[in-house]
Design a protein around this nucleic acid. Structure first.
Lengths: 159, 159
DNA sequence: TATACTCGGACACAACGAGTCCGAGTATCG
DNA sequence: CGATACTCGGACTCGTTGTGTCCGAGTATA
């Protein structure tokens, strides 16, 4: 049970993008977090594919959030970067072996998959309850408001 | 985000083990589910390491549940087979780059990891709320009580 | 005491994630 | 209007983790 490490990068990038209404290139985000720009590009591409950020090309291009930070949940980012598929996959083990239950009797998922999916639903619900705006607010509260405005100045200004 | 496929096997095995108070060899469990006995052995070893099942060697050996099914939660099985580590790992990205927050200011986890851990806690809580006994009860309700007693007879009797 | 059956850990193989690279496309500047 | 420089996008390679298998150590049985 291991989540893609790129999720952390993507979340931090989304928080940073809240302070800039102009496109921010991937290289700048990579420098800001001191991570590989080539690999970070992959995560940003995933966000773009999911429609969370909009990518503009050209000389002053980069990435911008498509929606308001209040309407982007952590679940959106996680599913975009880490894949939308469920963590637990039921292989219908009950339909195999000498005591296999006939296929026509399997109208409902088996009890184990029901329980696992319920737990996963709780996880999803907790993720969907938090938005990028909430995270930005928390950063302001813990690191002080000067942190994000400093980043904003560094993003818009030169290197 | 992908969970080890062996978790499903382990859960089904635990449910089956509730009907037998005598050791059941791994080969029999593998035949019952029509899966590789060699690989299933690995999952059962993980359960044994975690103290959920007790392994007895010798001619009439096998695996038995160590505790009552009511006191074995799904979380126990998942953590035993899939690993106890958290799915989201915080690499302290905030301490890197030009705007790195000083290490002595990082007494509390960063907002992103807090949110991710909260979601993971919800997932754990949902898993801990369900026990193996609950699953066995559900199987009785859906597949009828004759299913488990038939399996019990097959387990205790010859092949 | 010999035996047959069990678990346990050590050993290959495959798939996914991590990380890197170069080409296509566009806004800028001369 | 054209050349340029900067951007994203996808294709490629490598390492790690999970998947699957095998044989040896140990014990209750006959």
């Amino acid at each position: 049970m291991k989540m893609s490490g790129g999720v952390e990068w993507a979340l931090h990038c989304c928080v940073v993008l809240t302070v800039s209404h102009t496109p921010v290139p991937a290289a700048k985000l990579a420098d800001l977090h001191d991570v590989s720009s080539s690999y970070l590009a992959k995560q940003l591409q995933a966000l773009a594919r999911a429609g969370l950020v909009h990518s503009v090309q050209g000389k002053s291009g980069g990435y911008v959030l498509t929606r308001a930070p209040e309407s982007i949940t952590l679940l959106d980012v996680v599913r975009a970067v880490d894949g939308p598929g469920p963590a637990f996959v039921c292989t219908e083990i009950r339909q195999r072996g000498p005591f296999a239950t006939p296929a026509d009797a399997c109208t409902t998922p088996c009890p184990v998959s029901r329980a696992m999916w319920a737990a996963e639903a709780a996880w999803h619900q907790a993720l969907a309850a938090v938005t990028i705006a909430d995270l930005a607010r928390d950063v302001d509260a813990t690191s002080g408001p000067e942190a994000l405005v400093g980043i904003q100045a560094w993003l818009t200004g030169g290197a």
